[in-house]
Simulated assay, not measured.
Amino acid sequence: MKKKLSIITINYNNLDGLKRTVESVINQTWQEFEYIVIDGGSTDGSAEYIESQRDKIDYWVSEPDKGIYNAMNKGIYKAKGEYVVFLNSGDFFLSSAILQDCYAIIRNGNADVFYGQIKIDHHHKEKTIVYPDLLTLSYMKDMVINHQACFFKLTTLLEHNGYDEKYSLAADYHYYLKLYIKGKIFCPILFPTVKYDISGVSSLRMEEYRAEMKQVWTDTIPTFLIKLEKDYFNLVSTIESSLILKLAFKLRKYKIKWFHGK
């Protein structure tokens, strides 16, 4: 029977983080997923640990790769689930029931990307990052939703040939923008799903990541689309304001008590 989800973990010389990630996956109460681990030829005992867990892992490989997104693409092309979630070494699901809770939402929708919230450690305190219910270009110009908290439709990933490996740090950002301008569907999951390890490559090289994001934006987004979307939301806002005013006048006309506060 086809699995509902494919969980992909990529790792390179992060044995402690890998153990934390694998444990959070294999301890899920809902088990209708396949687990794929792509290791980049680690020399710190990661491969041996993966081998020791092989009865709980559907596919794994330990070999040199060409970077983060090359490893993720390897996982994509091995995946067979309806949706894919990338949980990289060091990241972990916030509870053993997270997949059960998330799939209850996913099975009732048909989005290309379901995106949840994340938790991080910020200045020694846990912080929740909340993404908007409705993504817009103005928001996405400077922000990117966290791919560890996303469930991606596999057919959409394959349709776009996975991640563009010419971007070494922000290929996930490029993928989001590409889907967005093609009108693909993004659906929010309104609770935190993962604890994100901020010691990962993109976090440690934040200045480079931001610079690459700017390049991705320039490469991907035609200028006219920004104005078009802004005009659209302004129009919608104007219409909504007009409807609210009309409703207010009607309430006043019929002397609705709660409208007058009496």
Score class of each variant (00 low, 15 high):
residue 51 E to K: 15
residue 104 A to P: 04
residue 101 D to T: 03
residue 95 S to L: 01
residue 53 Q to F: 06
residue 119 K to W: 07
residue 72 M to I: 01
residue 120 I to T: 14
residue 103 Y to H: 12
residue 60 W to T: 00
residue 88 N to W: 00
residue 52 S to P: 10
residue 99 L to V: 07
residue 60 W to Q: 02
residue 118 I to C: 10
residue 97 A to C: 09
residue 51 E to G: 06
residue 97 A to I: 04
residue 102 C to D: 01
residue 90 G to T: 05
residue 81 G to Q: 10
residue 72 M to G: 01
residue 94 L to D: 11
residue 104 A to I: 01
residue 98 I to V: 15
residue 116 G to C: 03
residue 104 A to L: 12
residue 93 F to L: 15
residue 93 F to S: 12
residue 65 D to R: 13
residue 62 S to D: 03
residue 63 E to T: 03
residue 108 N to Q: 13
residue 107 R to E: 15
residue 75 G to L: 14
residue 96 S to W: 00
residue 60 W to A: 05
residue 64 P to A: 10
residue 67 G to I: 03
residue 97 A to T: 14
residue 113 V to T: 03
residue 53 Q to N: 06
residue 116 G to N: 02
residue 112 D to G: 07
residue 67 G to P: 05
residue 51 E to W: 05
residue 107 R to T: 01
residue 60 W to L: 04
residue 105 I to W: 03
residue 93 F to H: 11
residue 91 D to W: 01
residue 66 K to T: 02
residue 96 S to Q: 10
residue 63 E to F: 04
residue 85 V to E: 09
residue 109 G to V: 04
residue 108 N to L: 10
residue 53 Q to V: 05
residue 65 D to K: 13
residue 110 N to G: 15
residue 117 Q to M: 13
residue 74 K to V: 05
residue 103 Y to D: 06
residue 76 I to E: 08
residue 103 Y to T: 01
residue 57 I to K: 10
residue 58 D to E: 07
residue 97 A to M: 08
residue 63 E to Y: 05
residue 115 Y to R: 15
residue 72 M to P: 00
residue 92 F to I: 01
residue 106 I to S: 11
residue 105 I to K: 13
residue 57 I to D: 11
residue 83 Y to M: 06
residue 112 D to Q: 07
residue 62 S to R: 05
residue 74 K to S: 08
residue 53 Q to E: 14
residue 104 A to G: 10
residue 69 Y to R: 03
residue 115 Y to A: 12
residue 96 S to D: 13
residue 61 V to H: 02
residue 118 I to E: 14
residue 104 A to R: 15
residue 61 V to R: 12
residue 65 D to H: 12
residue 56 K to M: 12
residue 99 L to P: 12
residue 111 A to E: 03
residue 118 I to R: 14
residue 112 D to I: 04
residue 73 N to E: 07
residue 122 H to P: 00
residue 109 G to I: 03
residue 66 K to V: 00
residue 57 I to Q: 10
residue 97 A to Y: 03
residue 62 S to F: 06
residue 101 D to A: 10
residue 121 D to E: 14
residue 60 W to F: 15
residue 76 I to T: 05
residue 52 S to I: 03
residue 116 G to Y: 01
residue 98 I to R: 11
residue 86 F to V: 11
residue 93 F to Y: 15
residue 54 R to L: 04
residue 111 A to G: 09
residue 95 S to D: 11
residue 107 R to V: 05
residue 59 Y to Q: 02
residue 53 Q to D: 02
residue 52 S to F: 07
residue 113 V to R: 13
residue 58 D to T: 04
residue 109 G to W: 09
residue 68 I to E: 09
residue 95 S to Q: 02
residue 84 V to Y: 05
residue 119 K to M: 15
residue 61 V to S: 14
residue 110 N to V: 06
residue 118 I to N: 06
residue 71 A to Q: 09
residue 87 L to C: 03
residue 60 W to Y: 15
residue 114 F to K: 06
residue 94 L to I: 08
residue 94 L to K: 01
residue 51 E to R: 14
residue 68 I to T: 05
residue 70 N to F: 14
residue 53 Q to S: 08
residue 100 Q to W: 02
residue 86 F to W: 08
residue 114 F to I: 02
residue 59 Y to V: 00
residue 51 E to H: 11
residue 96 S to C: 04
residue 58 D to L: 04
